[in-house]
């Protein structure tokens, strides 16, 4: 954690690094609301890049975990994510079932294999 994370500095960073870079796309969307359709090639490419970034964040959280999640073994984290994903595919593509199974495997494994 950064030594600078005190006072108003984190709020300044929130606006500068979080709010503005994200909000610019909503503002552009408002301006372009006529003329660009969901299937245009630029939008398909932009969506592909955005999906790959989001996937990258997911993979890093599972493989190079922060905080308390780092205390759970890597193999167990990957197994739990894979079980959750498999359950999602098997049970009517249900998000709820997938998340519940992934969490159940992680917690049960963590409990059973606790050092």
């Amino acid at each position: 954690m950064n030594a600078d994370m005190a006072g108003l500095w984190p709020y300044f960073l929130l606006v500068l690094v979080g709010f503005l870079p994200n909000e610019v796309w909503r503002a552009l969307g408002l301006m372009m609301a006529r003329g660009l359709n969901e299937d245009s090639e630029l939008v398909v490419w932009a969506r592909a890049v955005a999906t790959a970034i989001l996937a990258g964040v997911i993979a890093k959280l599972i493989l190079l975990s922060p905080g308390a999640l780092a205390g759970i073994p890597l193999g167990l984290r990957v197994t739990a994510a894979a079980c959750g994903f498999a359950a999602f595919l098997l049970v009517k593509r249900s998000l709820f079932v997938g998340v519940a199974v992934g969490e159940a495997v992680l917690l049960a494994g963590g409990y059973l294999f606790a050092p």
Partner: peptide, 20 residues
């Protein structure tokens, strides 16, 4: 362990909802 389980909610729910 439970704190780890909470943190795990983010990647697992994003993984599945993105795939969906």
């Amino acid at each position: 362990l439970f704190a780890g389980g909470l943190l795990f909610l983010t990647p697992v729910s994003f993984l599945i909802s993105t795939a969906r």
